[in-house]
C-alpha cells in the first residue's frame, strides 16, 4: 500500500502556543491586558525633566532639556523646535548589540517621537527655543517605542513644558488569529503585524499610528485600533496617578498641602 502521510506520534509541537487553551498568553495575561507599569518622575537631577518608565521588562529612561537656546544653527523665530535622540543600551537585549544609536530603527523611533511631540507641545509658547528629548532603552522586552513615548511624555511634564494633553501610546500584536494588547518580545515578531498607536487620552485624538506588516482587511484594522485605544487608556490611568502623586509630593514638600 501507498506511503501514508506523515502523522507521526513523535516530536513536540513547534513554536510557542501564544494563547493557551485557558485563554492565557505566554506570560499569563489576558489578551486585553497590558503589562505591569511602574514609573517615577524626576529621576535625573541634572536634566530639566526626566522620568524612568517600566512596562513589564521593557525599561526606559527619558530626559528632557529645555526649553533652552538652540544649540545648533537651525531655529524657528516664532516657535520652538523639538529634537529627539533615541538610543538603546548595548545590554538591553539578550544578544549584545554592536551599536547603541544611529541605526535605522533608532532613527525611525526618534523621528516618530519628535513628530509626535511637535504636535502636542504648545510650541508657540517658546519661540527661538529648542526642546531636547533623550530616550534610552535600558532593557528591551518588546514595545520600546511605546515605552519611549510614555516616558518622554512623563519627562516633558516633569520639565514643565506646556502641552495640550498627555500622550499615551500602546501597541497591539496579532498572534494565533487574535489581537493582543501590548505584546512582549515573544509575541512581537518581524513576521507578524503590529500596530503602535499614540493618542491624547482626554481629547481622544490620534497622534501617531504605525502599522508594521499588513492586516487582512479594514475590519481587523478597526478592531486593532479598539484594542490599542483600550490599552492606552489602561496605561493612561497609571501615568495620571503617578503625575498626581508626584505633584502632590512637590506641593507637600513646599508646605502647600497637608498630606
Amino acid at each position: 500500500m501507498a506511503p501514508p502521510p506523515k502523522r507521526g506520534r513523535g516530536g513536540g509541537a513547534r513554536g510557542l502556543e501564544y494563547i493557551s487553551l485557558d485563554g492565557l498568553r505566554v506570560d499569563g495575561r489576558l489578551h486585553t491586558e497590558v503589562r505591569k507599569i511602574r514609573c517615577s518622575l524626576g529621576t535625573l537631577s541634572r536634566a530639566d525633566g526626566s522620568a524612568y518608565y517600566e512596562q513589564g521588562n521593557t525599561r526606559v529612561l527619558a530626559a528632557v532639556y529645555g526649553p533652552r537656546e538652540p544649540t545648533g544653527r537651525d531655529f524657528e523665530h516664532d516657535k520652538a523646535i523639538v529634537k529627539c535622540e533615541f538610543s538603546t543600551a548595548m545590554f538591553a537585549s539578550t544578544a549584545r548589540r554592536r551599536t547603541w544609536k544611529g541605526d535605522r530603527k533608532s532613527t525611525a523611533a526618534a523621528i516618530v517621537v519628535q513628530r509626535l511631540f511637535e504636535g502636542v507641545i504648545l510650541l508657540a509658547e517658546y519661540p527661538r527655543c529648542q526642546i531636547d528629548i533623550y530616550v534610552q532603552v535600558l532593557q528591551n522586552d518588546g514595545g520600546t517605542l511605546v515605552a519611549a513615548v510614555n516616558a518622554a511624555c512623563l519627562a516633558l511634564i516633569n520639565a514643565g513644558v506646556a502641552m495640550s494633553d498627555y500622550v499615551v501610546a500602546c501597541s497591539v500584536g496579532y498572534v494565533d488569529n487574535t489581537f493582543v494588547a501590548d505584546p512582549n518580545s515573544l509575541e512581537s515578531g518581524s513576521d507578524r503585524p503590529e500596530l503602535t498607536l499614540a493618542i491624547t487620552p482626554h481629547s481622544g485624538k490620534i497622534c501617531s499610528c504605525q502599522l508594521v506588516s499588513k492586516l487582512a482587511d479594514d475590519a481587523s484594522f478597526e478592531s486593532a485600533m479598539q484594542y490599542a485605544t483600550a490599552g492606552a487608556k489602561q496605561i493612561f490611568q497609571v501615568l495620571e496617578y503617578e503625575v498626581k502623586k508626584y505633584s502632590l509630593g512637590l506641593l507637600d514638600s513646599r508646605g502647600m498641602v497637608a498630606l
Binding site: V26, G28, R29, K36, G56, T94, D141, L186
Partner: peptide, 12 residues
Amino acid sequence: NVQVVAREHYLR
C-alpha cells in the same frame, strides 16, 4: 554564546 533570558510571569 550563553545568554540570560528574563521573562515575566503573571500570577492571577
